[in-house]
Amino acid sequence: MEKHTLAKNEIMATGSILLVLIYVVFFTLFIIIFPIICNNKFLLHIAILANIFALVAISWDLLFGFVGILNLAPAVFYGAGAYTVGFLTKYCHIHPIGGLIIAGCVGLLLSLLLGLPSLRLRGAYYAMATLAFSAVLNTLALGMPNITGGEEGIIGIPSLISGTEWNFYFSSYLVLTCVLALKYMLSTKYGKKLTSIREDEILSQAAGIDTSKYKVIASTIGGVIAGLAGGYSCYYFNNVAPEVFSIAFTFSIITITVTGGIGTIIGPVIGSYLLTFANENLYIIGQYRLLVYSGIIIFVILFSPTGIIGAVKKLKRN
């Protein structure tokens, strides 16, 4: 029975220090050169968006692509992180760095809360539970205007960092750190055990791997990343609104990851850049964005479930 992901020598490839160095060099150059080439604040803004989405996509992929759990609510961690920053700033006037860190912690706590049921529930049930959870949060965010600002949300959050260029550097740095840290983690014994759970959970249990523990850890890491992304997004956009809990957001994340390639770390990043830029640049499809996204997903799932990265790897093999 074909598994939902075929990412293969991901593990082999990451062991190489050379590759890591190449990544670092490439990304650093990219980060430095990009703002110089694109002397266009708007493009930088799009890139920042892409970075934020990439972070959430990576965190979602950690659960879906690597452990095999379908979570229909990456929005939960992201939105919670964003609203945390919103609340803390509005009511406690917290220092931005503190806010960011706490957003990450909130992501961690929520991921534990949502992660534990995942151990007891089968895939479909769990997915529905997460969907329900994000719907609850959405309703709460809308339905309690006194606390959450209702439809408008919380506005007037000061920036963590001022200036588009610096935000670009910061967000890109976040993505880079995330990618490197995860790639390193995956090359360790822990990472290989994680992927073995995706490959064949029963077999990994027979190999002595406490699958529950690993699932929770993976889920937690994902939660922290998404929470941080959410917190940062609140600082960058200077506001937070119930849209963060919407199905549209969840769906965008899924599209990004599936297109770029499930079960890889770099896939979501590529997918994010591709789709975010496509979305903003092709105004023609602007109105039909979700339609196009869904079309992409349908196409990818039917014909290349492993996304772009998977297709590239298959070509390389042949």
Partner: peptide, 8 residues
């Protein structure tokens, strides 16, 4: 694939 079906 149950999971792919959900995404689809």
């Amino acid at each position: 694939s149950e999971i792919n079906m959900m995404v689809l």
